[in-house]
C-alpha cells in the first residue's frame, strides 16, 4: 500500500495496530472498539493517535474525543459502499475536525477527486498507483456545481462573479 497525503506520496508515519497488539511508541491507529475500551489510557498517551472507523461506525461515536484524536481512518469496504463520504463531511463540517481524514480500504482511482471534495486529505492506495495516475484522476474535473468542504468555488459563484463584473463594466 502507498499513502498519499495532501497530494504527495509519503511514508506512513502511523502504524495500524490490531486489538490485541502491543502499542508502538510512535503514532498508532486503533479500532473504534479498542479506542472505547482503552479510552483513558489512549487519551493520555504521549504520541499521535488515530481511530479507524468501519462502515456503520459513525463519527458521532468519537465526537467528544476529536480534540485528542490526530487522525480518523474511514473504511471503504467496497467501492460501491460510500458511507465514508458522508462520514468525512460530517467530521469536517459538523465536528470541525482539523486532523487527518484518511481513506482506507477499496480506494479506487476514479473516486480520488470525490474523496478529496468530501474532506479526505490522505488516501491509502494500492501499489500500482503512480504520481501520474494520481495527478490525472485527482484533477479530472475542473468545475463543480456542489459546494463542499474543499472550499472550491462552485459554478454558481463563478457565474455570479461574472454577472457582477458584467454589471461593473456596463456602468463604467
Amino acid at each position: 500500500m502507498k499513502l498519499i497525503r495532501n497530494g504527495t506520496f509519503v511514508e506512513d508515519d502511523f502504524i495500524t495496530v490490531g486489538d490485541g497488539d502491543q502499542l508502538p511508541d510512535g503514532a498508532a491507529i486503533v479500532s473504534l472498539e479498542r479506542w472505547q475500551a482503552e479510552r483513558e489510557t489512549l487519551r493520555a498517551r504521549n504520541a499521535p493517535i488515530g481511530v479507524r472507523l468501519q462502515s456503520g461506525q459513525e463519527p458521532g461515536a468519537i465526537a467528544d474525543d476529536l480534540d485528542r484524536i490526530d487522525l480518523v481512518a474511514l473504511e471503504f469496504p467496497i467501492y460501491r459502499n460510500g458511507r465514508a463520504y458522508s462520514y468525512a463531511r460530517i467530521l469536517r463540517e459538523r465536528y470541525g475536525f482539523k486532523g487527518e481524514v484518511r481513506a482506507v480500504g477499496n480506494v479506487l482511482r476514479d473516486q480520488f477527486q470525490f474523496m478529496i471534495r468530501c474532506g479526505f486529505d490522505a488516501l491509502e492506495v494500492t501499489d500500482n498507483i503512480t504520481p501520474e495516475i494520481w495527478a490525472e484522476n485527482a484533477g479530472s474535473f475542473s468545475l463543480f456545481y456542489q459546494p463542499s468542504v474543499d472550499g472550491k468555488k462552485t459554478v454558481l459563484s463563478l457565474r455570479q462573479r461574472l454577472a457582477a463584473r458584467a454589471r461593473e463594466n456596463a456602468t463604467a
Binding site: 462502515s55 456503520g56 459513525e58 469496504p77 460501491r80 459502499n81 460510500g82 458511507r83 463520504y85 458522508s86 462520514y87
Partner: peptide, 13 residues
C-alpha cells in the same frame, strides 16, 4: 441522500 447513504442497506444489492 445523506440519510440514505448512511443507513441504506449495504448487505444485499
Amino acid at each position: 441522500m445523506r440519510v440514505y447513504n448512511m443507513y441504506g442497506r449495504r448487505d444485499n444489492i
